[in-house]
């Protein structure tokens, strides 16, 4: 088995500026978290794209299934009163 197959897959998140969220930028293979962090610096922040990097093992991510999206999210779809636009107010104060 080649080395790359033994290496783990990591997902990389970069915060571009203090005050902003970390954003997923891509993935890479590495032996452990430390190495993944160094590789991520070399691959994804060559032009000062970030001030902070997160690396997470892809296998540690638990994801919702898009195929189940309908029943996963529909409990929220029948609650239009959660949106500001649901409330019709008199014109003079509508910009509230």
């Amino acid at each position: 088995m080649s080395v790359t197959e033994k290496l783990e897959l990591f997902e990389v998140f970069v915060r571009s500026k203090r005050g902003l969220d970390h954003k997923h930028v891509g993935s890479l293979h590495a032996e452990d978290h430390e190495q993944a962090l160094e590789y991520a610096r070399d691959c994804y922040t060559r032009r000062s794209e970030g001030v902070s990097i997160w690396v997470i093992k892809s296998s540690d991510i638990c994801a919702s299934q898009e195929d189940d999206a309908d029943c996963f999210y529909d409990p929220n779809d029948d609650k239009p009163y959660r949106h500001a636009t649901y409330y019709v107010l008199p014109d003079p104060v509508n910009n509230m």
Binding site: S2, V3, K6, E31, D32, Q35
Partner: peptide, 8 residues
């Protein structure tokens, strides 16, 4: 690559 694996 072997050295990286051995070191790790």
């Amino acid at each position: 690559r072997d050295a990286i694996t051995a070191y790790n």
